[in-house]
Design a protein around this nucleic acid. Structure first.
Length: 375
DNA sequence: CGGCATACG
DNA sequence: CGTA
DNA sequence: GCCG
């Protein structure tokens, strides 16, 4: 007894190699808060993000996902990682990523990430993949054709309509929006929409709602208490925005599973003038008045009953959404999607929710503020 | 060794 | 294949 | 690439 002056903590293990006790060590990112600007491990995270992105551009999506899990954990970790052993205790950090971290701790960098950064191929693929309508496959195809710049890509004879638009709007879409830029557009949307539909609810989501200082696009969820009114909502909103000269292009104009509606004349579906109702999404190029810059604005219509799940589903981050869906399925035998929460027993049943918090409660996930969903 | 989010055009 |  |  005497002669043994170790505290319990020291007995169990060296502080140095223990995880910070405040850290929620889980593979489900949605179970813990992740700040937008972590105070720790910033440099390490940046380097791992380089490798993650390179894996994506290479078509190794599963591999990239592993890096994403590790990165998300490091962003939520409340102090700097100081040893390989400490890193390896984090769920999501295995031998390979662990070794990268070991390299980082001894040399201050990760050689593979440095090589990627220096590679002309990845710089080019990175630029191509930023074009709206271009994913990693098309980016690689263009690179193999020998294109080196956006200008050369525009001469490609096989461009889709959307890719041509994406290339033309490339310079504008690359410009980030400040929160003030976004507020300017929100003010217009609010004025225009509420003039027509005073009871409309308009919620900015995406990175803006998560607190980002600068955003590449603006996502807005619109709903109306009367379901019948909501039917023509998107059509009316898009129409008036075009008439007022705000919308320059429609990048994507679609509806949810309205294919279920049989006997819809095909000329109405393929017609460039959309007369159909029940549309639920329009991604458009919106001209910001003060700068004349084309901004990507995504309008999403939600039936009133699905408003909470739609807002939750479109707030992100992407990894937060994947995580919450994965958790619902694996741990609760439920399915979460923007259009609702479902219990996967036979017959499959919709679980009604009245707020975003409802979804967290039903899933048994502690509430996470939008600003803390940045995994 | 299977699974990795889900739904849309 | 691409979008979120 | 990592987890269960």
């Amino acid at each position: 007894m005497e002669g043994n002056n170790f505290t319990d903590e020291e007995l169990s293990s060296d502080m140095e190699f223990d995880l910070d006790p405040c850290f929620i060590n889980t593979k489900y990112e949605c179970l813990r808060p992740t700040p937008l600007k972590p105070k720790y491990n910033q440099c390490l995270v940046e380097l791992l993000e380089v490798i993650e992105h390179a894996r994506e551009l290479n078509g190794e999506e599963r591999n990239a996902l592993s890096y994403r899990h590790a990165i998300a954990a490091l962003k939520a970790y409340p102090r700097n990682i100081e040893s390989y052993a400490e890193a390896r205790k984090i769920i999501g950090i295995g031998p390979k990523i662990g070794n990268h971290i070991k390299e980082f701790l001894t040399t201050g960098t990760i050689p593979e990430a440095e090589e990627i950064n220096a590679s002309e191929k990845y710089q080019t693929l990175d630029i191509f993949s930023r074009v709206y309508g271009v994913g990693y496959k098309t980016a690689r195809k263009w690179y193999q054709k020998g294109y080196k710049s956006i200008r050369e890509c525009m001469k490609d004879p096989y461009l889709t309509h959307v890719q041509r638009l994406g290339l033309e709007l490339f310079d504008d879409f690359q410009k980030k929006m400040s929160r003030q830029d976004i507020q300017e557009i929100l003010d217009i949307l609010n004025k225009v929409i509420k003039t027509m539909y005073p009871d409309c609810m308009i919620t900015p989501v995406g990175g803006y709602r998560r607190g980002k200082e600068f955003s590449g696009d603006l996502d807005v969820v619109v709903s109306h208490p009367q379901e019948t009114v909501a039917n023509n909502l998107l059509k009316d909103i898009v129409e008036i925005l075009i008439n007022k000269g705000h919308l320059k292009h429609k990048l994507f104009y679609g509806q949810p599973s309205a294919k279920n509606k049989k006997d819809v004349p095909s000329e109405l579906i393929s017609s460039h003038k959309n007369i159909m109702d029940n549309l639920d999404k329009c991604f458009c190029a919106f001209i910001q008045p003060s700068t004349r810059i084309c901004r990507q604005v995504d309008l999403i219509i939600a039936p009133y009953s699905q408003y909470p799940t739609t807002v939750l589903g479109w707030t992100g981050s992407k990894q937060f959404e994947r995580s919450i869906r994965n958790f619902a399925k694996k741990e609760k035998k439920m399915t979460f999607a923007s259009h609702g929460l479902f219990l996967n027993v036979v017959p499959r049943r919709r679980v009604c929710v009245t707020s975003e918090k409802d979804v967290f409660d039903i899933l048994g996930i502690p509430w996470v503020e939008p600003e803390m969903r940045n995994c």
